[in-house]
Design a protein around this nucleic acid. Structure first.
Lengths: 201, 201
DNA sequence: TTTTGTAAGTAAGTTTCACTCACCTTTGGA
DNA sequence: TCCAAAGGTGAGTGAAACTTACTTACAAAA
């Protein structure tokens, strides 16, 4: 497993592109290998020259999409100074990426998690790095005093990731557009300021 | 579609139980119909007397598990007075149910969302009711002044659901136990009080 | 008691689809 | 020019989801 994703020969690229295109319209299960091959203009057998599995193809396509996603995130937080600003940027960039790239969102949120092989794939390694980035920012914020020091950083990480993902679910399942700026602003406001109403300040 | 879940004939019950048992150990994809039949002590063909599909079987089993889950939730919030207490109870009860019933959690969080037929199933209708309950409590809290009136109730709903689900993911994927009380308390604290650090109060 | 209609269950197909394998074709260096 | 390796083909295979024609059990009407 854990096959690296290299640009590779034209056939491989055509297969990945064809599959990616098909994933925009149908779910993984209902895409057949012959459909992929036909759409790519190659034969079915070629798929198995470059991918060990139909699932491996899925994982490599996810890897490819996620690499761009990850690069965008890291570019977005580079310029930010405070941890809060960084987390805000991550929430926005994540929602924005999922909204722009439906295939990425659908693969990541709906298709891969049901099989163990995903968690041994290179794609999952990237996702772990992304999650780790968030955790590190949280820890830094707790040390500098930006964030409350009396909480479990892992839990905040899960709340943030969960909020991002669940916000995208409706969009990605029912193909509904969301207002990324509003959603991201709202989520950040809820998580940073809390939802309890106090008369004071 | 939308086949109702009735107790039904012994064969149907045996099939559902066998499938449920298998789901504790393996994922949906790698459970075969002959395996289900063998385990249930019936023939393969009988499955298709009671279920239109292998997926329909999955949905009906989910429906069954979720009915118990839903009943527990509603019993848990009945006695609570404030909206905040109600939401706390829901978070705790949800995490607790997922922790206790791995099959329910695995089906709901990992297996069903990738196919459209789920969203036409009776199981999904129940899940919508559950989500609706949370939304109604939030709205009530915003009206009574318990919760801030200046936020999008849908977003808070998504943050809560997302936090619950993401907290269960590691547990359900890697079979790790979590401290339900600690996790639920932490999530509630983060969402209600916020994570920003203020010197004041 | 006999008939009969229906629900429960069986067993042997059929089809579809992921995956394999033995075989061609092109290309770029020694 | 030769050859090795990489790119690509297409017919074939096995397994698994689903079908269909059939049998058995069983309760209520005649």
């Amino acid at each position: 497993m854990n096959t690296r994703v290299k640009p590779g020969p034209p056939g491989k690229i055509k297969i990945m592109n064809a599959f990616s295109r098909l994933m925009e319209v149908k779910d993984f299960q209902s895409i057949t290998t012959s459909e992929i091959a036909g759409n790519a203009g190659v034969t079915e057998g070629l798929i198995y020259k470059y991918f060990t599995d139909k699932k491996d193809l899925l994982h490599q396509v996810l890897h490819q999409h996620f690499a761009a996603f990850q690069a965008g995130i890291e570019a977005g937080i580079q310029e930010k100074q405070t941890c809060i600003e960084k987390l805000k940027a991550i929430v926005f960039a994540s929602l924005d990426s999922y909204a722009r790239n439906r295939v990425l969102a659908r693969i990541l949120l709906l298709e891969v998690r049901n099989s163990l092989s995903y968690f041994e794939s290179g794609a999952y390694a990237m996702v772990k790095t992304y999650a780790r980035t968030i955790l590190d920012i949280i820890r830094e914020g707790m040390e500098t005093g930006e964030l409350r020091p009396d909480m479990d950083p892992f839990l905040l990480q899960k709340v943030i990731l969960g909020a991002i993902e669940h916000t995208c679910l409706k969009q990605v399942i029912f193909d509904k557009k969301i207002d990324v700026a509003a959603a991201s602003g709202g989520i950040v406001d809820i998580i940073f300021n809390g939802v309890k109403h106090h008369g004071c300040h």
